[in-house]
């Protein structure tokens, strides 16, 4: 993948771009600050981390990895992981897939594109899955489908609610038809879990598309999304190529989906834990631990 902006003029004046000389003012180094992609204001890393990785100026939600999210949502050290060792193999001998998997594992420090387990949220015991954006953009292969299916089966057995955070580019092309079958498999598990009267809350984060949108992400009893998250079936580029016209601004954003009636609410990351606690409280059948 070509790094974005590779051919642009360097922004750092030390690289000798004379155009930028006039902006040479004492500034915080890159390691300590980051520029918000939405409002372009500089944010101190420390402040950003304290603010749940949300821009304090404009409310832009920075991408989080699965572990960061679990730390934000679960109580203290209550999270215990399930099926941590499951991972996909190159079953179809797809070219370069082994290398891609290897790179994804190095980049994300995870074995697969989803982390599953049990935890407590506001004192309520529940099963949780969080997809990992830094592992092949959270794409769903056999292992992801299997982990999520097992989590729903476990939750069914223990009559626990499931809270799921989705972020995904869709089904994993490198596993071909096998990844498509995961949509059916996970849907079956969600259905059985739900039919037994258990709660499933999905939190859609940026971006949730493709096979994940068309399966367990939109099958939840309550579906909420983070502000500004891209949620859709086909990606915007594919739609633009198909219909040969530019998409309107804000198309497929969480706000757009809320307006069209496909979301229950949009909840900022800062309020998510309280919101989930409230939902679990309202669905509680007297088993607060």
């Amino acid at each position: 993948m070509i790094k974005r902006g590779l051919f642009k003029n360097p922004k750092n004046q030390l690289e000798g771009n004379p155009k930028l000389q006039k902006y040479a003012v004492p500034c915080v180094t890159d390691e300590m600050s980051i520029s918000c992609p939405s409002c372009k204001k500089a944010l101190l890393n420390e402040e950003l981390a304290e603010n749940f990785n949300v821009c304090s100026k404009c409310g832009y939600h920075f991408r989080l990895n699965a572990r960061q999210r679990i730390r934000l949502i679960s109580d203290g050290n209550t999270f215990s992981e399930t099926d941590a060792g499951l991972s996909s193999q190159n079953i179809l001998d797809f070219p370069d897939y082994d290398k891609k998997l290897e790179n994804a594992r190095l980049e994300s420090a995870e074995k697969e594109a989803v982390v599953c387990g049990n935890c407590e949220i506001g004192g309520y015991h529940c099963c949780i899955f969080v997809m990992e954006p830094y592992f092949m953009m959270g794409s769903m292969g056999v292992a992801v489908g299997e982990k999520i299916t097992r989590l729903f089966e476990l939750a069914l057995e223990k009559s626990l609610p499931v809270v799921g955070f989705t972020v995904s580019g869709g089904a994993r092309m490198q596993e071909g038809i096998m990844s498509l079958m995961q949509m059916a498999k996970t849907s079956g598990a969600v259905k059985r879990h739900g039919d037994a009267g258990n709660l499933y809350v999905a939190v859609l984060t940026d971006p949730t598309t493709g096979g994940v949108t068309a399966s367990f992400a939109t099958e939840a009893d309550i579906i909420i999304a983070e502000p500004g998250a891209l949620v859709g079936f086909a990606g915007p580029r594919v739609i633009e190529q198909t219909i040969r016209q530019k998409l309107p601004h804000g198309f497929q954003s969480a706000e757009f989906l809320l307006e069209k009636g496909f979301l229950d609410d949009i909840v900022s990351r800062i309020l998510q834990k309280d919101y989930l606690t409230k939902l679990l409280f309202l669905h509680d059948r007297g088993r607060k631990s």
Binding site: S215, T218, E219, A234
Partner: peptide, 26 residues
């Protein structure tokens, strides 16, 4: 494939497919 266009997204293509999967398996 399922159609991808403005109308299809507005009316919840992903949700429609997901619902079919869930209802068909049961």
């Amino acid at each position: 494939g399922a159609f991808c266009g403005i109308g299809a997204e507005e009316r919840g293509q992903g949700q429609a497919i997901a619902e079919n999967l869930m209802e068909m398996i049961s």
